[in-house]
Deep mutational scan, measured.
Amino acid sequence: TRVETATETAWISLVTALHLVLGLSAVLGLLLLRWQFPAHYRRLRHALW
């Protein structure tokens, strides 16, 4: 049971790290898009909202 718990903890930390990385890359990508294509971003936002 001790090994299982350790594996579970490792998986949880791995998944958390993955989610953090994905979230950060998504935010960075959005910022980059907004910085590179302001007109396109505004049009996209206008279409979405």
Score class of each variant (00 low, 15 high):
36 Q>L: 09
7 T>V: 13
30 L>P: 03
40 H>Q: 14
31 L>A: 14
49 W>I: 03
12 I>R: 12
8 E>R: 03
1 T>D: 07
35 W>M: 15
34 R>C: 07
7 T>R: 12
47 A>H: 10
36 Q>N: 15
20 L>S: 08
42 R>Y: 09
32 L>D: 04
5 T>S: 01
35 W>L: 15
10 A>W: 05
22 L>W: 06
8 E>S: 04
5 T>Y: 04
9 T>I: 14
10 A>E: 10
47 A>Y: 08
43 R>N: 09
43 R>K: 11
22 L>G: 09
18 L>W: 07
37 F>I: 07
4 E>Y: 11
18 L>E: 02
34 R>A: 07
29 G>H: 00
47 A>G: 07
45 R>C: 06
35 W>N: 15
37 F>W: 07
14 L>Y: 03
19 H>D: 00
22 L>N: 02
33 L>P: 05
24 L>I: 14
41 Y>C: 15
42 R>T: 11
39 A>G: 15
14 L>S: 02
39 A>I: 10
10 A>Q: 11
42 R>K: 14
25 S>P: 00
32 L>F: 04
21 V>T: 11
18 L>P: 04
47 A>N: 08
31 L>G: 05
39 A>N: 15
37 F>P: 02
49 W>A: 03
30 L>F: 14
33 L>C: 15
3 V>C: 05
16 T>Q: 01
3 V>A: 05
3 V>G: 01
35 W>E: 09
2 R>W: 09
1 T>F: 11
26 A>F: 15
42 R>F: 06
41 Y>I: 09
22 L>S: 09
27 V>A: 11
46 H>Q: 10
48 L>W: 07
23 G>V: 11
40 H>D: 05
6 A>G: 14
46 H>D: 09
26 A>L: 14
39 A>P: 04
16 T>I: 12
7 T>S: 10
33 L>E: 00
16 T>Y: 05
28 L>C: 06
21 V>Q: 00
46 H>N: 11
45 R>H: 07
26 A>E: 01
3 V>I: 14
45 R>Y: 05
21 V>L: 11
24 L>A: 13
36 Q>I: 14
35 W>I: 15
40 H>N: 09
16 T>D: 02
30 L>H: 05
13 S>T: 11
30 L>M: 12
43 R>Y: 07
36 Q>S: 15
21 V>F: 13
47 A>E: 05
43 R>W: 09
34 R>V: 06
21 V>K: 01
38 P>Q: 15
23 G>Q: 04
38 P>H: 09
13 S>K: 11
38 P>D: 14
34 R>N: 05
14 L>G: 00
27 V>M: 08
11 W>Y: 13
39 A>T: 15
4 E>N: 13
21 V>G: 05
22 L>V: 11
20 L>W: 07
17 A>P: 01
13 S>H: 11
42 R>H: 10
13 S>C: 13
1 T>P: 04
35 W>A: 15
20 L>C: 13
11 W>D: 01
14 L>T: 05
